[in-house]
Amino acid sequence: MPDTSTHNALRRPRAARKTPRVDPFDGAEGSGTATPSAPEVDTQYLETLLGYNARRAALSVITVFLRRMEPFGLRPVDFSVLSVIAHNPGVTSRQICAALDILPPNLVGLVKSLHKRGLILRKTHPTDRRAQGLHLSAAGQRLYREAQATATMLEHEVSGRLSPEELQTLIGLLRKVYRA
């Protein structure tokens, strides 16, 4: 586990924060209010909005994801790109951009960074000599296997309040929204 003392030193002290940060998946109890005597804030309208609820759920999952992927040096987008490459050896950058809705200029730097870390290899595409197929290196395969196992574990933890059927329904409904 990496040393987080430097990171923690840069954060504002808990008392100085306007809203306490509570990790809903670490077993800690918390109401999400700044002080016990503070009046409850009305978020009733916001809670009727799909975007608000999707964002709140995503932030809860991403917070845990970032912490657990820190030892691997992976952000969510890095993990997603590695996953697409792992499951589609020889995939092109254009295909990754389309699959993950990433702008090509943003992917260029990401691919360069993953290549520099020795996680991916670029090979001439077998049917389009102008394109390069992307593959995981041996180091990339090892790192991805470990990161994927970690991601699977944390997904089970963060979705623990849902039954398997509820989870599948939620995933299906969210896909309907973003694939519309």
Rank of each mutant, 00 (worst) to 15 (best):
residue 2 P to W: 06
residue 4 T to I: 14
residue 7 H to I: 15
residue 7 H to Y: 14
residue 11 R to M: 13
residue 11 R to W: 10
residue 11 R to H: 12
residue 14 R to F: 10
residue 16 A to H: 12
residue 17 R to K: 10
residue 18 K to C: 11
residue 18 K to R: 11
residue 18 K to E: 14
residue 19 T to G: 10
residue 20 P to Y: 02
residue 20 P to K: 05
residue 23 D to Q: 04
residue 25 F to D: 02
residue 27 G to D: 07
residue 28 A to K: 15
residue 30 G to K: 01
residue 32 G to S: 00
residue 32 G to P: 04
residue 37 S to T: 10
residue 39 P to N: 02
residue 39 P to K: 09
residue 41 V to M: 13
residue 42 D to V: 06
residue 43 T to S: 07
residue 45 Y to D: 07
residue 46 L to E: 09
residue 46 L to D: 05
residue 48 T to P: 03
residue 49 L to C: 12
residue 50 L to Q: 10
residue 52 Y to W: 11
residue 53 N to Y: 04
residue 55 R to F: 11
residue 56 R to V: 15
residue 58 A to T: 04
residue 59 L to Y: 14
residue 59 L to P: 07
residue 59 L to V: 12
residue 60 S to M: 15
residue 66 L to D: 15
residue 66 L to W: 06
residue 68 R to L: 01
residue 69 M to S: 05
residue 70 E to W: 01
residue 70 E to C: 06
residue 70 E to I: 05
residue 71 P to M: 02
residue 72 F to L: 07
residue 78 D to M: 04
residue 79 F to I: 04
residue 80 S to L: 07
residue 80 S to A: 14
residue 80 S to C: 05
residue 80 S to W: 12
residue 85 I to Y: 02
residue 86 A to E: 00
residue 88 N to S: 08
residue 88 N to V: 03
residue 89 P to K: 02
residue 91 V to G: 00
residue 93 S to I: 03
residue 94 R to Y: 15
residue 94 R to K: 14
residue 96 I to E: 04
residue 100 L to E: 00
residue 100 L to C: 01
residue 101 D to V: 11
residue 102 I to G: 01
residue 102 I to Q: 01
residue 103 L to G: 11
residue 103 L to M: 15
residue 103 L to H: 15
residue 106 N to P: 09
residue 107 L to W: 00
residue 110 L to R: 03
residue 112 K to E: 11
residue 112 K to F: 12
residue 113 S to P: 11
residue 118 G to Y: 00
residue 119 L to W: 07
residue 119 L to Q: 06
residue 119 L to M: 06
residue 124 T to D: 10
residue 126 P to N: 08
residue 130 R to P: 06
residue 131 A to Q: 07
residue 134 L to T: 02
residue 136 L to P: 03
residue 140 G to E: 04
residue 140 G to Y: 05
residue 141 Q to I: 08
residue 142 R to Q: 11
residue 143 L to G: 00
residue 145 R to N: 13
residue 145 R to S: 08
residue 146 E to I: 03
residue 148 Q to A: 15
residue 148 Q to R: 14
residue 149 A to P: 06
residue 150 T to P: 01
residue 151 A to T: 11
residue 152 T to C: 12
residue 154 L to A: 05
residue 154 L to V: 07
residue 157 E to K: 06
residue 158 V to F: 10
residue 158 V to D: 07
residue 159 S to P: 03
residue 159 S to V: 10
residue 160 G to V: 09
residue 161 R to A: 12
residue 163 S to P: 01
residue 163 S to C: 00
residue 165 E to G: 13
residue 165 E to Q: 11
residue 165 E to V: 13
residue 167 L to V: 03
residue 167 L to F: 02
residue 167 L to A: 01
residue 173 L to S: 11
residue 174 L to K: 07
residue 174 L to R: 03
residue 174 L to H: 05
residue 176 K to W: 13
residue 177 V to T: 06
residue 180 A to F: 13
